[in-house]
Amino acid sequence: MPPETILPARRHALPPGLIVLALAAVVLAASIAFMTVGVKGNWAYVLELRGRKLAAIVLVATATAVSTILFQTITGNRILTPSIIGFDALYALLQTVLVFFLGAGRVAAFDPRLLFLLEAASMLALALLLYRWLFLGERRSLHLLLLVGVVFGLIFRSITQLLQRIMDPNEFVVLQDRLFASFNGVNPVLIGMSATAIGLVGLAIWKRRFVMDVLLLGREPAIGLGVDYRRLVTLILVLVSVLVASSTALVGPINGFEPISFYGVLVANLTYLLLPTFSHRFLLPAAAMIGILLIAGGQLVLETLLGFDSAVGIVIEFAGGLVFVFLLLKGLAR
């Protein structure tokens, strides 16, 4: 026996696979309830409407949860989300520019598929451009990326505000409507397009679920274990960008216009809390399901059952904000 103190081993009793299964059951139950609770009158119509809404929620929640977890894995940080580089601000700028120069009427008459592609493509371009900064040096360049992201966000926001000030007030009202994330009345064709993109990205990520665990060790240990670090991280950033771009183009910026997404932070940290594992094969599906539960379950309870209209977003932002502050304080205390 070595002369060292030995504490009893501690391991969490529930295996993560079981937690993921339990989550799946809860998500299934919540989805059925979401589709059926309180339906009156024309079932076919209501089911179609709610089905579309649920599909949009599933896509956006999955994309946000998965992209946040991956972004946190490669940055080794639990507060950041991919939107730090100003996705939401760019989306707002795009919408504002379109309405300002073309007029609300013409924008509304646009082919939605074209608009979706335009929005997704410009966000993707921004992401790829900025994420390249991550590799300017051998280390420390994450700070550079964040700084550049914040500066870009500021520029986008200032132009947006300027245009909004000098805009026709009637058009401004229409614009404001477009700038809020809404799961209602999403075009089914767009749901199909974004589902295809998110599904393909999901497959690419699932194929690499084991090597993503190695990234948690950091750059040098990962290289030592044979990971082509630069290539893998670049690929993940591309996949993350596609996820965020296609979900934001689908429903608008779910994170409001803050530079930090509280929804993503909330989902990711709830996942870490619930699943004491580092394995992405458990974390990623669990995060997606927790993300779905927060929005769909929240809407079911708060809006359908209790009748508080559009309260979910506020509650999620509030809870996410609290988690964020808690994480910051914990980081400071250390």
Binding site: G76, N77, R209, F210, V211, D213, V214, L216, L217, G218, P221, L225, G226, F278
Partner: peptide
């Protein structure tokens, strides 16, 4: 390492080149 790992987890990572996870 920023991630919270056990000793067993860490040592098992050493096998990644052979096990692929």
């Amino acid at each position: 390492i920023t991630a919270r790992l056990t000793v067993g987890d860490l040592v098992a990572f050493g096998r990644f080149p052979h096990s692929g996870g």
